[in-house]
């Protein structure tokens, strides 16, 4: 009984980080109908940012958070101008292809620099014990940080002037333009935020599990599953769906070979899309 409870709690902790990662994807999706296929690689970029700062420089791992956040934002703005700007308003498949090709370039660069070796960042934090079970301190801290960042994104979207502009653009780009919102700049900032969140989520995941340059695929998939569950373009839904996925993974992992976990998640993704085309947690699109 305690074992089940422990795996549920750990699922919630890891799921919060998955939820945060998916928020980055769903934010861009919801605002401009662009599916960012560099998402997984941006998550990995966050992991390597962490590795670079923590292992090479020897800084405490969590100090990587601000640089990853800023670097991710700048990378996202760049991504917007290179691959997304010309695609906004064109058939969604075109932005799928343009972000896909950027991803190929990044993966090509990454593999030729780092190869496909496994990297690991050791985090020495005291755990929290519950009977026979100990929750690693890294899991707890990652979950807390993920929740804090998710909450600040929510507050930013709801309260700040810029956040309101983002929501206005998501709702109706033309109308937003008419009332004087600089929509292009808002779109660029949105992609910047989306990528920054993906990067930070990647950094946090890097404190939990070992990674390679190609780890992005599976985390990107998790983000897609979470996005489908939580409703497209709905960051709050994403956070709850992330927790659901984390719990599910925790429950399934002991019984299923690792190579099938991804397949199960994909099947879940397809099933959710076929049965609930709008997502489970969201009654409608554009819940931003």
């Amino acid at each position: 009984m305690l074992g089940v409870l422990a795996s549920i709690i750990d699922g919630v902790l890891v799921g919060l980080v998955y939820g945060l990662a998916a928020m980055g994807l769903t934010l861009i999706w919801g605002v401009m109908d662009v599916i960012n296929l560099t998402h997984g690689t941006m998550i990995v970029a966050g992991m390597f940012g962490l590795y670079g700062l923590a292992s090479a420089v020897g800084a405490p791992p969590y100090l990587a958070l601000p640089p990853v956040l800023i670097g991710g934002f700048l990378a996202g703005v760049l991504l917007y101008w290179v691959a997304v700007h010309r695609m906004v308003g064109r058939p969604p498949l075109m932005s799928l292809l343009s972000t896909f090709s950027i991803n190929l370039m990044l993966i090509g660069l990454g593999t030729s620099i780092w190869g496909t070796a496994l990297f690991n960042v050791e985090v020495a934090l005291p755990g929290f014990s519950l009977g026979r079970y100990t929750f690693p301190g890294a899991h707890i801290l990652a979950a807390v940080l993920a929740a804090l960042i998710a909450a600040s994104l929510y507050l930013f979207l709801q309260r700040s002037r810029l956040g309101k502009a983002v929501r206005a653009v998501a709702n109706n780009r033309e109308a937003a333009e008419l009332v004087g919102i600089p929509t292009t700049r808002v779109l660029a900032i949105t992609v910047g935020c989306g990528v920054a969140i993906a990067g930070v989520a990647g950094m946090l995941i890097g404190t939990l599990f070992p990674f390679t340059i190609l780890s992005g695929d599976s985390y990107q998939l998790k983000s897609f599953v979470v996005t489908a569950l939580g409703g497209f373009g709905n960051p709050v839904g994403a956070l709850f769906a992330g927790i659901a996925l984390g719990v599910l993974e925790g429950a399934v992992t002991p019984f299923v070979p690792v190579s099938w976990t991804l397949v199960i998640e994909f099947a879940l993704f397809v099933l959710v899309l076929v049965v609930f085309p709008g997502g489970i947690f969201a009654a409608r699109r554009g819940a931003l």
Binding site: S98, S101, I102, M105, G108
Partner: peptide, 13 residues
């Protein structure tokens, strides 16, 4: 991969 990606990007854009 980098070159494939760059080529595809140029075509799409």
């Amino acid at each position: 991969l980098f070159v494939s990606g760059a080529l595809l990007l140029l075509i799409v854009l």
